[in-house]
């Protein structure tokens, strides 16, 4: 069982009476502990893929199993629980709550945890630990507007890590940062699979970012057009599964 199993996933929108296929039959397997870059130009469907992977959006058709659970059948509330337990988000524009301290921001996912709720003290301790991982232990009581962009993104990464999710979904994590800070943030993210045992998926349009990842999935017009691991195409087995799924879709 893979961490992520996408089988023939479609996501269509209606725009001015026209049907737009943002995801056009995507099948994918991502294993636990992988470091994956999803690349493509704007309009290629990579944002939609990210939203579907992040359980922020549901496929129009097809199956999406995350950590063994079919999430395409879940309602809003159940999806919220899945996001909380399984996924840590890192956004391009950080998306921290401006009125709260770094510590409170980082502790936020634990607040919304239903099973195994922690006491406020334990939540604070976990948040402090996560801030330590990103090297901001001494900035716990600062608010976002008292921090640099790089520091804010570190807080966001700490927030993504605090709930010990299966995977970190980073959407253009360096898009709002200068090149030096970008490198630092990227270093932090690419080290996570090894150091924290988390799967990391980075959505980006920058080839330099993709180069740092082990696996690269390229989207074009809602389809996967390239899937390479360290420069070599995927093993035959996975590719065959993909072809099979696509074939099944064509039968009807």
């Amino acid at each position: 069982m893979s961490l992520i199993e996408l089988d023939d996933v479609y996501r269509t929108y209606e725009m001015g009476g026209e049907v737009v296929r943002a995801l056009d039959g995507v099948s994918l397997r991502i294993e636990a502990g992988e470091l994956v870059a999803i690349i493509g130009q704007s309009g290629s469907g990579k944002s939609t893929l990210m939203n579907v992977l992040g359980c922020l959006d549901s496929p129009t058709s097809g199956r999406y199993a995350l950590a063994g659970q079919d999430v395409s059948v879940l309602d809003d509330e159940q999806l919220a629980h899945v996001r909380n337990r399984t996924i840590g988000f890192v956004f391009q524009s950080f998306h921290l709550l401006p009125r709260q301290t770094a510590l409170e921001n980082v502790a936020l996912p634990l607040l919304y945890r239903r099973e195994g709720r922690l006491t406020p003290k334990a939540r604070e301790a976990a948040a402090q630990e996560a801030l330590g991982i990103v090297g901001l232990a001494d900035r716990a009581l600062h608010r976002p507007n008292e921090m640099s962009g790089g520091q804010r993104q570190r807080v966001a990464i700490a927030r993504a890590l605090v709930g010990k999710p299966h995977m970190i979904l980073a959407d253009e994590p360096t898009g709002n940062l200068d090149s030096k800070t970008s490198l630092e943030i990227l270093d932090l993210l690419v080290a996570l699979p090894e150091e924290q045992g988390r799967t990391v998926i980075i959505v980006t349009h920058e080839p330099e970012v993709a180069e740092r990842c082990h696996r690269t999935i390229r989207l074009l017009d809602g389809k996967v057009v390239e899937d390479t691991r360290d420069g070599t195409p995927l093993p035959e087995k996975a590719a065959a599964a993909e072809r099979e799924a696509r074939g099944a879709a064509h039968v009807d």
Binding site: E77, A80, H81, R83, N84, L97, L108, Y112, R113, R159
Partner: peptide
């Protein structure tokens, strides 16, 4: 609105 979106992404349910 954005704060609501952030909270939802982090696992807040509609009831929260």
């Amino acid at each position: 609105t954005r704060e609501i979106g952030i909270r939802m992404a982090l696992g807040a349910t509609p009831q929260d």
